[in-house]
Design a protein around this nucleic acid. Structure first.
Lengths: 223, 223
DNA sequence: CGAAATCTTGACTGTTTGATAAAACTCTAA
DNA sequence: TTAGAGTTTTATCAAACAGTCAAGATTTCG
């Protein structure tokens, strides 16, 4: 009779399977339409079960969404956690960028779900951002600052540096349609991924200013 | 009796005012909740009028959305149009980045509306992207290629370069909540904007690798 | 097997939503 | 001033929506 009670209780095979199916379908829906735009009917349909049956596993729409968010944030921050203060700065950053890019490739729906929540003003995870995300970023910002002080990477605002890594990599998941329209069908998904990886490597390591050439031009006005 | 007919017909003062009020309210709603998540009721309420009255100006929900999208794309592409093949590459790119950053600061709702449409797979503007966006990007990609061939900027994939400018700048509008959580309240909106501008300038011009120092470290594995 | 626990379904409720009709009201220009 | 165009509201509708309930079907396990 009681299915998803919070009590310590082993999950049935069917329960595990169905919860998985539901969360997968819900990810599809929520990531494309946001919390309000998604409907239980569509999630149930996509999960291949009746609406009342879905509601047997998750009492309310919000419960599905929260279950999704809960499992998301941890996965999402994993790449940043791996940024190692002991390692060499540039290779560390490079592999962080690559890990984020791989996540955008392998978990685009998760990326979009996160983006959707942000666009809405993060009403449901703002607190989590405060308690989980911020301390982690603070910690890693200190690591970056250390590298800068040692002259091992150029001195920039470490937090904005992190923003730029997030945005450039997640762009390939969140704006996938646009990317495909612009790049055309010539190059498949794998090719696009490698192109993006190569480009971001150059951008973050060396920027656009040519090192050898004198062709620098005048500084632009600082408006 | 007939209000918003497609016929050539002068608009009333009231008509102009109310359409403006509606579009502003709709922008608020659609940018935060997407097409499905937004409701006419809430838009009407936010616009300070009754739902039937709103529907007197825009027959269907979709009409409001489309009116919004139509006026958006043109504004959105304006900064890229200004990228001048004749100018000096680095200052041109720098001021393009700055213009995009200014748009993120001054029109965050428009940015979010666009992002929302993308997350949904751009069902309503995919065609417009093909016919308007792609040719423009193709044209500007050629400009960039020319600069690269002349050795005036580092050789990179021009389209991915454009993606990175879009993503880094729009991030400050689309993920504003997250940015605020991480940066804290110490620095106001203006300070954040200037910090971002300064950081992006360094990133795009010089990247992170220090020029003077030898501290380079080994190359990372190309996974 | 067979009973208890688990799972599934159809029928249903109250509410919200997009949209319409027509009556009532307001503004404007001759 | 007043007729008619333009605007707003009240009342209403059908569909979509989140969520409930109890009865029936299935699985699990002693």
């Amino acid at each position: 009779m009681k299915a998803r009670a919070t009590e310590t209780q082993r999950k049935t095979r069917i329960q595990t399977e169905n919860e998985e199916k539901i969360l997968d379908a819900a990810l599809e829906e929520f990531s494309a339409h946001g919390f309000r735009g998604a409907t239980i009917d569509r999630i149930a349909q996509h999960a291949g079960m009746s609406k009342p049956n879905l509601l047997y596993y998750f009492r309310r729409k919000q419960d599905i969404y929260e279950a999704l968010i809960a499992r998301l944030l941890d996965t999402w921050l994993e790449p940043l956690r791996e940024l190692d203060a002991i390692g060499d700065p540039l290779p560390e950053l490079q592999s962080y960028i690559r890990r984020k890019l791989e996540m955008a490739r392998d978990f685009p729906r998760e990326s979009r779900l996160f983006a959707n929540e942000m666009l809405q003003g993060a009403p449901r995870i703002k607190r989590l951002l405060q308690s989980e995300l911020k301390p982690l970023v603070d910690e890693k910002a200190e690591v970056l600052k250390g590298w800068m002080k040692a002259g091992r990477i150029n001195p920039v605002d470490p937090r904005h540096l992190i923003f730029s890594i997030w945005s450039t990599t997640q762009h390939y998941a969140d704006f996938d349609v646009q990317v495909q329209v612009i790049l055309g069908p010539d190059r498949g998904a794998d090719g696009r991924f490698e192109d993006a990886a190569r480009y971001l490597e150059t951008l973050f390591l060396d920027g656009l200013r040519p090192k050898n050439a004198a062709g620098d031009g005048p500084r632009i006005r600082t408006l």
